[in-house]
Nucleic acid binder design. Structure first.
Lengths: 138, 138
DNA sequence: TACTTATTGACAATGATTTTCAATAACAAA
DNA sequence: TTTGTTATTGAAAATCATTGTCAATAAGTA
């Protein structure tokens, strides 16, 4: 469903909507865990056999540029992507199965203000990510 | 000074202290910004010309294993390393010059408890990193 | 001082990502 | 609809980062 919205976004930004992109978007949009380019390739090829790995890389690049997906950083590697949450959200990842959940409501106002005073840095952004075990895996 | 401590750590863990490792350790230990393997290589070769890049990779691997350094994740890439702070510390990075500062005192207790209840995840770890401009660059 | 064996640097191999290129297909305009 | 322009495609090659192999060397214990 929302895959159509992503395709609209591509179209509205001057990109063409192709069968290859459709397959990639449908795969990534509905995944609840971060996928590497090769995983996206394997899954998407079930929908569109002629898909090439290079096209996956190029499509992910565009989806990231449009803020529809984000790169997920993990101890084991940083080459996986997942849908961007809406608004200011952070990721919570299951260390066992990779299942991702989004959360918000982190208030770092007090912390950043104090750090800013202590260090002299002007703070502009923060990365926060939680790791744990999901309900199924715990 | 503290480079000697790192070398001791290596020794105490059964690793030999060589000229190559000495050069790498001295470079990484005194850097106030994250360095990539190639940067470590270039800087260390000023102290020990015969150093090979492969040895840099292998030494960084051991320093990470001993928790003397940590990998630094950034939007532009995740192949840089910096000294580990002491205790539970997080990084604050200058987006302009890369200068790193450590901070602590993040209290995410309340947040993680509430997220845990909402999502059913058992939270075990968190990553927090701040980005901004250091006193010089702002 | 001698000896065992971890460590070295060079080279090759791998893995991930990017570039190149000619063929194809989206889609705007007629 | 049809057409024409041009973005997009997949395959192959090129690049970049990292890891494995190996014989020569040197650290550190005995």
């Amino acid at each position: 469903m929302s895959a159509e919205l992503w395709l609209n976004q591509l179209h509205e930004n001057g990109y063409r909507v192709t069968a290859a992109r459709r397959a990639v978007v449908e795969t990534v949009e509905k995944s609840t865990r971060a996928l590497t380019p090769v995983e996206v390739y394997d899954l998407s090829r079930k929908k569109y056999r002629a898909l090439g790995l290079v096209t996956v890389y190029r499509t992910l690049e565009k989806l990231e540029e449009l803020h529809l997906i984000q790169r997920v950083h993990q101890p084991m590697g940083c080459q996986a992507f997942i849908s961007m949450g809406q608004g200011h959200q952070h990721l919570l990842l299951c260390q066992n199965c990779g299942q991702a959940a989004f959360f918000e409501g982190d208030d770092l106002e007090a912390l950043t203000k104090s750090i800013s005073k202590k260090t002299g840095y002007q703070i502009q952004e923060h990365w926060l990510q939680l790791f744990g075990l999901c309900a199924n895996c715990r």
